[in-house]
Amino acid sequence: MSPEPLLRVERLGKRFGGFRALDGVSFHIDRGEVLGLVGPNGSGKTTCINVISGLYAPDEGNVLFAGRSVGGRKPHLLARSLINRTFQSPRPFLSLTVRENVEIAATYGRASTAAPAVDVVLERLGLAAEAARRAEDLNSAHQKLLDLARALATGPRLLLVDEIAAGLNPAELLLMADRLRALAAEGMALLVVEHLMGFLERVTDRVIVMNAGREIFDGRLAEAVRDTEVVRVFLGGAAHGG
């Protein structure tokens, strides 16, 4: 019998009025695995992350973390339960310093004694020199790192990463990919929403392709690009309601 995956999403459904953003999505992530979540705009990727991180309650289905149901739990409780995330547009506390941003998460969201110290997180992400600066004075690449630092300071075992590569230059992309792989090598599971295929290829072990709120492919990225349904969605998605 295979061990229970760290995260299991079962027939997840989410509606906004008459629009079904998620329509029975199911997948799992193992410890130390990096799972990519790809699909056209509006396919439900960010909604999926929002449900798993507690920002939205699911209308149907369930989210199991380490075998325990966490669907519909409040985000601050999930943060303290080893699940954290970054945002598509980074959301630091702008008037606070970089250190204070991370300190808040380390203070309130620290889920275990294994969570790294503030200085360790800042050093690891190359933000130590910026510690005393206000977050609003950082460039967007540093704000993305700060978003990641805030999440890492809680010591998560599952990290949801929402389009962190967007807007980074090629050198920053490589560095970010290496950082995410290093986290996975330490046993952290990552769910990475991304559009940049090169970045996904470098980071992910497996991808889920979504369209219209459903998963249509689960496998390696190299196989996904040869899948006829995936190709149809990406190349002819507009004509087919993607």
């Binding site: 601050h76 995330r85 606070l96 300190e103």
Partner: peptide, 23 residues
């Protein structure tokens, strides 16, 4: 600590929640 948490809530309640703050 509470004051820092309250300022985090003022800045961005969603991000504060993900930092573990009970908004």
């Amino acid at each position: 600590r509470l004051g820092l948490a309250l300022q985090a809530i003022r800045e961005d309640p969603v991000s504060a929640a993900m930092a573990g703050v009970a908004v």
